[in-house]
């Protein structure tokens, strides 16, 4: 076998797997019951899918100088995806998007209640000003 065929085959496998990752994310979005588990489906396959597709692109271009820019593009993805997932998850938790019956344990609940109790005690009868933060 000549190397050209091998490179083509590897990048073809990468492309198909990367596309399947997107499909996996969509299946997860449709089948998972609550926001939090859907977030898992939305973030993780995205990162791997982009990695595989960029690797296929790098293999197809067959020149070394595209690799740094592909690495930069992937690193940006790596840095931004957890942040946006965390922001969405935090907003989801704070606005009570959770279904408690789907959780086997929730160790944040007690802390939130305690903090709310402290804040209410501090403010007395006044309304708490959580929105002021």
């Amino acid at each position: 076998m000549n190397p050209e065929t091998v490179i083509d085959a590897v990048s073809a496998v990468f492309m198909v797997t990367g596309a399947l990752m997107s499909l996996g994310a969509a299946i997860g979005l449709l089948r998972f019951p609550d926001l939090m588990s859907r977030m898992h489906a939305a973030t993780k396959p995205q990162v791997l899918g982009l990695f595989l597709l960029l690797a296929a692109l790098g293999l197809q271009m067959r020149s070394w100088w595209v690799w740094p820019v592909l690495v930069v593009a992937w690193l940006f993805q790596l840095l931004t995806v957890p942040v946006s997932a965390h922001m969405v998850g935090r907003a989801g938790y704070r606005t009570k998007h959770l279904h408690p019956e789907l959780l086997s344990s929730d160790e944040l609940e007690a802390v939130v209640q305690q903090a709310a109790g402290q804040q209410a005690a501090k403010h007395g009868v006044d309304d708490d000003d959580e929105a002021g933060r």
Binding site: S22, A26, R38, A42, Q46, G49, L50, L53, A56
Partner: peptide
């Protein structure tokens, strides 16, 4: 919002495949 994010990622994947092919 989450689903829209995934949709954008799928567009990105399509652009990537176009470039590679």
């Amino acid at each position: 919002v989450l689903a829209a994010d995934v949709l954008l990622a799928i567009f990105g994947a399509a652009l990537c495949i176009d470039m590679a092919v």
